[in-house]
Nucleic acid binder design. Structure first.
Length: 260
DNA sequence: ATGGTAGTGTTACTA
């Protein structure tokens, strides 16, 4: 099974690119983040025409997550148990969607950005990651052999080598010790980064501003974390850097994992 | 000189 994750930064703007990617890459299951639309606005027809089903969770022009699959999908779950809320009045955001495909539990995740270290959104990010860790621990406690893939835009660069210049990130989010510890807590719970060894030095995101892509000033923040049973099935992975090229590109590119 | 792009939906907000 070929599994991929992609922060598309609006599915309505990029539906053609996404369907083209599915057909070109032979991806069976694609987790999407930042669809930026409500369920009733999602362009499902283009996916159906290509032979894919869609499960989507979107509440507004912000966030939005989906799982697109040409294999049968079951056990769809909106948000993870204990997922923190945001805003006034406090409400759950459209940042997590679980679905089972061919026995693999896939979670499409859009981790809060954090904005700045002194912004309340930063604490929300840390709380959200802590909640995810607790939920994920529970899934493995229920079944230690479950193949679980936690995929998406984590908005964290796990190591200094995952950004083009760590000095440029002094005092910034995405690289702070607390964020990295929150991610490491998931590793301690049994979920490992299954793409790193297959994609050395490759980035998954380049800001639209300041010629970041032509200069290859990017970040590796789109990650696939696998449970032990999932990690044991990974036969390869790659990052589709070409998807950042040309007019109408998302600022993120697909991360693709092959499961045996 | 404090540098600017993209999307949604509206003159702001998010990333």
């Amino acid at each position: 099974m070929r599994l991929a994750t992609w922060n598309v930064n609006s599915i309505r703007t990029r539906v053609g690119r996404v369907v083209d990617f599915l057909e070109r890459s032979g991806t069976d299951v694609l987790a999407l983040q930042e669809t930026k639309c409500r369920d009733d606005q999602f362009p499902e027809e283009a996916f159906h025409a290509a032979g894919y089903d869609v499960v989507h969770h979107g509440l507004s022009q912000w966030n939005g997550v989906a799982v697109v699959s040409r294999l049968p999908v079951s056990d769809v779950e909106v948000g993870f148990p204990g997922m923190p809320t945001w805003g006034e009045p406090a409400a759950a955001e459209a940042r997590a969607l679980g679905a089972t495909v061919d026995g693999v539990r896939v979670w499409s995740l859009y981790v809060p950005n954090g904005r700045e270290l002194d912004n309340p959104h930063y604490q929300y990010k840390l709380d959200w990651l802590a909640g995810l860790r607790t939920a994920a621990e529970g899934w493995l406690a229920a079944d230690a052999d479950a193949p679980i893939a936690l995929v998406g835009d984590w908005n964290i660069a796990p190591r200094d080598e995952d950004v083009w210049d760590i000095a440029a990130f002094a005092g910034a989010t995405h690289v702070s010790p607390a964020e990295r510890e929150a991610l490491a807590a998931l590793t301690e719970a049994g979920f490992s980064d299954v793409t790193r060894e297959h994609t050395p030095g490759a980035y998954t995101y380049w800001d639209y501003q300041r010629l970041r892509f032509p200069r290859n000033e990017g970040m590796r923040i789109d990650l696939v974390l696998g449970s032990p049973a999932l990690a044991a099935r990974v036969s390869g992975a790659h990052i589709d850097r070409d998807e950042r090229k040309g007019k109408g590109a998302s600022d993120h590119v697909p991360v693709v994992v092959d499961l045996g």
